[in-house]
Simulated scan of single mutants.
Amino acid sequence: MKIYRLHKKQKLPITLNVAWNFLSNPNNLKTITPDYMGFHILSGTEKPMYAGQIIQYMVTPILGLKTKWVTEITHVVNKHYFVDEQRFGPYALWHHKHFIKDIEGGIEMEDIIDYKLPFGLLGQLAHPTLVKPKLEEIFNYREKKLIELFGVYH
């Protein structure tokens, strides 16, 4: 069983409150997700983020295949971090930790995603050419979009 990790850090010139209010609001996921992913929230965003929250989306992650993605917010520490875990969707495992901390002149956000692909060896073969590049592309888009929204950290 192969578990992969994607680790990203980004600094933004905004306050911790602004960062938390934006990043912890699941409705903002559509804003920072590429349009071609067809991201659409189906349910679960009626209340502010809380541990135990179930959020359902429709996404087109790869090869034009539309799929339902169900995540649970498993941990929330206000203005510090939250964790979402896939309960149903395209991965055999998806565990995404979002950390936010104050730094001089802004905040630093850190994403750590541990994930496992379905289909055993076939999934592992698809990882370097299909899955990993797609995840990198999505998170690079997110980084650029956050800079567009909040500016460049100096």
Rank of each mutant, 00 (worst) to 15 (best):
E136Q: 15
K9T: 14
L63N: 09
L65N: 12
G38P: 08
L63D: 08
Y141R: 04
A92W: 02
F139G: 00
N140E: 14
N140F: 08
K8G: 04
S43Q: 10
K11M: 10
G89S: 03
G123D: 05
Q56R: 15
E143W: 08
T31G: 01
I100Y: 07
L122G: 09
T31I: 12
K132W: 04
P90W: 02
Y36L: 12
K11S: 11
P48C: 06
R142E: 00
Y4E: 10
I100M: 12
L12N: 00
H96M: 07
T60N: 07
E104K: 14
Y36F: 15
Y36T: 13
V70M: 09
K144T: 13
L122Y: 10
S43T: 08
N78L: 12
G105W: 06
T74W: 08
M1P: 07
P34M: 06
E108V: 10
T31A: 12
E46M: 04
T15D: 05
T74Q: 05
K66C: 03
M109Q: 12
L125T: 06
P133R: 06
M1S: 14
E85V: 15
M49R: 06
Y141P: 00
A51D: 05
M37N: 07
G123V: 03
L122K: 09
Y57V: 09
V59H: 08
T71Y: 06
F99S: 14
V59D: 04
Y57G: 03
K101I: 08
I113T: 10
K11E: 11
I62K: 14
E148V: 07
